[in-house]
Simulated assay, not measured.
Amino acid sequence: MNMRSIGLIGGLSWESTALYYQTINREVGRRLGGLRSASITIHSLDFEPISALQKAGDWAAMAGLMGRAGRRLAEGGAQCVLIGSNTMHRVADAVQAEAGIPLLHIADALAAAILATPVRTVGLLGTRMTMELPFYVEHLARHGIRCITPDEAQREAIHRIIFGELFLGQVRPASRERLAAIVDSLVQRGAQGMVLGCTELPMIVRPEDSPVPLFDTTRLHALAAVDFSLQDMAHAVPAQA
């Protein structure tokens, strides 16, 4: 059996899209050996107008834009669709409906990884929308996972680092220290694990920056895509956490 084709809505930002592409292809090569790489189509969007829609809170326009991207991936032969962003899963249902192929939800991949451990209460780091709008926290709650979010000043700092630095490919030591301090404060409030709930955060937050387990949503989502792609190939080696 051939591998199934993965469709990725990227550019949200392209920095994390590159992480997805690298992780997926390296994992396919690891599991299949030789010179194997993924069957993957990327529809990379221009993030500037999407950022403007986010600031305006125009989720209907974003749903339409993202849905059309999902449909084009399906028309191009993709057999599943991934949204390469935690925040844009706010419109996941619209993308699923428009694409008409399975949507692999980033929070489902995250929940599966958390539930494989004793952790049930996590700190959530992400964009302001991911931390403040209910869609993400409620999705995890349906899996029995409780989220602790940073306070207002901390949320503002994280959002600024993501949009003002990481989206531009900048990783600053002072920002890493600020994020590590926020992680520590969430642990003091009862977090047993820490969710990197923005696909750019793995660029700056490392395992050694957290006293509790980190859950890297970018990697977990990418591995879920590989699982889907290779599930009919019995000779593929198992996944690794």
Rank of each mutant, 00 (worst) to 15 (best):
C80Y: 01
V81N: 04
L82G: 02
L82V: 14
I83C: 09
I83Q: 06
S85Y: 04
S85V: 04
S85N: 08
S85Q: 03
S85P: 11
S85I: 03
N86T: 10
N86I: 08
T87A: 13
T87P: 12
T87S: 14
M88C: 08
M88D: 09
M88V: 09
H89F: 09
H89Q: 10
V91N: 08
V91P: 02
A92R: 10
A92P: 03
D93P: 00
D93I: 05
A94L: 03
V95E: 03
V95D: 01
V95Y: 00
A97L: 12
A97W: 06
E98C: 06
E98M: 09
A99E: 08
A99C: 11
A99N: 09
A99V: 09
G100V: 06
G100L: 04
G100R: 05
I101A: 12
I101H: 12
P102T: 11
P102E: 12
P102D: 12
L103R: 04
L103D: 02
L103H: 03
L103W: 05
H105S: 00
H105A: 01
I106S: 11
I106H: 11
A107R: 02
A107C: 14
A107M: 14
D108E: 15
D108T: 13
D108A: 13
A109E: 07
L110H: 06
A112M: 09
A113F: 06
A113I: 07
A113R: 14
L115C: 10
T117S: 15
T117G: 08
T117L: 10
P118H: 11
P118I: 10
P118M: 07
P118D: 13
V119D: 04
R120M: 13
R120P: 14
R120Y: 12
T121V: 15
T121P: 06
V122T: 07
V122M: 02
G123A: 03
L124S: 03
G126F: 09
T127D: 05
T130F: 02
T130I: 03
M131D: 01
M131G: 02
M131P: 01
M131Y: 02
M131N: 00
E132Y: 00
E132M: 08
L133G: 00
L133M: 14
Y136V: 11
V137G: 14
E138P: 03
E138D: 15
E138V: 04
E138G: 03
H139A: 14
H139D: 11
H139Y: 09
H139W: 12
L140V: 10
L140Q: 05
L140K: 06
L140P: 06
A141Q: 15
A141G: 13
R142Q: 14
R142P: 00
G144L: 08
I145S: 04
R146T: 15
C147V: 13
I148R: 01
I148D: 01
I148K: 01
I148Q: 02
I148N: 00
T149M: 11
P150I: 08
P150M: 10
P150D: 10
D151M: 11
D151K: 12
D151Q: 15
D151H: 13
D151R: 14
E152L: 14
A153P: 07
Q154H: 13
Q154L: 00
R155T: 09
A157V: 05
A157N: 01
A157M: 03
H159Y: 09
H159T: 11
R160V: 06
I161K: 02
I161G: 05
